[in-house]
Amino acid sequence: GDPRGNWFSGSISFDEKRSNPNHPNYYEITSPSGVKWKRQWLIPKEKMDELIKQDKIYWGTKPEYRNVPREKIFNGEETQIIPKNIIDGAESTRNAQNYVDLILGEKQCFDNPKPVGLIQRFIQIANMKKNIIVLDFFAGSGTTFEAVVQQNKLDGGKRNCILIQKPEKIQKQSRFSTISELCLARMKAVIPPKDKITCWKLHEKE
């Protein structure tokens, strides 16, 4: 019945048992019928006051207004969600191992690489601007770099990526002498033609 269009209600608070009285978002609000709700909310008081003023809080049916307050979310609006504790659909380390073997043309030259989809999911969950710089201090086989490349393809982003990897020796027989060399080869294999890679080598005295 809202003249602004169709909507559904989204949770905007923790229940009383899970609420933290010491949290900055722990405060009290009052429904149009005078029912008071004191708990931990997902938004600060200023934002809550704004939503109430805009009639974007659902209090339940008139005239009681006794339902737990929830936010009205209209069709087409973006809203924040809490990610699941379990990340599924991001493949496994076995899939990642087979993929790295395929892309580098060598069997098990790098042990236990992470799935690209897993790191890509972390980028999505972070929900930051599409022109950020993603930094990986322990680059390994370069999964983070490829995840950034794939996410840019997916949403048209212009993220850049900085990888840092010590030239650790690869112990097994391989055409790559160091992990950093392997990482660079993977980066070159997945980068779009229009983009570029810049490399710096830091020489340490040993």
Rank of each mutant, 00 (worst) to 15 (best):
R66A: 13
E91R: 07
C109Y: 02
I125F: 01
G140Y: 00
A147K: 06
A90F: 01
I103A: 02
A126L: 07
I81S: 15
D101H: 01
L135V: 09
T144Q: 02
I81H: 13
T93Q: 10
S141G: 08
N95F: 11
G60Y: 09
Q151E: 14
I123V: 01
P24Y: 02
A126M: 08
L102P: 03
M48F: 05
L104K: 12
R70L: 05
F145P: 00
K56W: 09
S92L: 12
E50T: 13
V116R: 05
V148K: 07
K129I: 02
T30E: 12
W37C: 09
K130I: 07
I57G: 14
P44C: 14
I73V: 14
Y58H: 12
K114C: 04
W37Y: 15
K129L: 11
Y27K: 13
D101Q: 12
K107N: 06
E106R: 10
F137D: 03
T79K: 13
H23M: 05
E46Y: 03
K47G: 00
V116T: 04
I133Q: 12
V148C: 10
W59S: 08
S92I: 04
I125D: 03
N25W: 07
P113H: 01
I43P: 12
D155R: 03
I119N: 08
E91P: 00
D88N: 14
N152A: 01
G89Y: 06
L118I: 03
I57E: 09
L104S: 05
P115E: 00
A96S: 08
F110A: 02
T30G: 06
K56I: 04
K107C: 01
N75W: 03
E146R: 05
N22H: 12
A96W: 10
F74A: 12
E64G: 08
M48P: 10
V116W: 05
K130F: 13
E146Y: 10
G105C: 03
K130M: 14
K56R: 15
P115N: 02
P115A: 06
N85G: 13
E64V: 06
M48D: 02
Q80K: 15
I123W: 00
L51Q: 07
V68M: 14
N85L: 04
T61W: 04
V35D: 09
V35A: 11
K129Y: 13
I87H: 09
I103Q: 07
A147M: 06
I123N: 02
G140Q: 02
L135P: 00
Q124F: 01
P115H: 05
N85R: 14
N25F: 11
I43Y: 09
A96D: 05
E64H: 15
V116D: 00
E78I: 02
F137I: 03
L154G: 04
N152K: 11
I123G: 04
S92T: 15
Q40S: 06
C109L: 10
I133N: 14
I73T: 09
I82M: 10
L135R: 10
Q54Y: 11
E78P: 01
L104C: 09
N127A: 14
T61C: 04
A139S: 08
F138S: 04
Y99Q: 14
T143M: 01
S33K: 10
I43C: 12
Y99R: 15
P113F: 03
W59H: 15
P24N: 09
D155Y: 05
G89K: 10
V134L: 13
G156K: 07
T79E: 14
K38E: 11
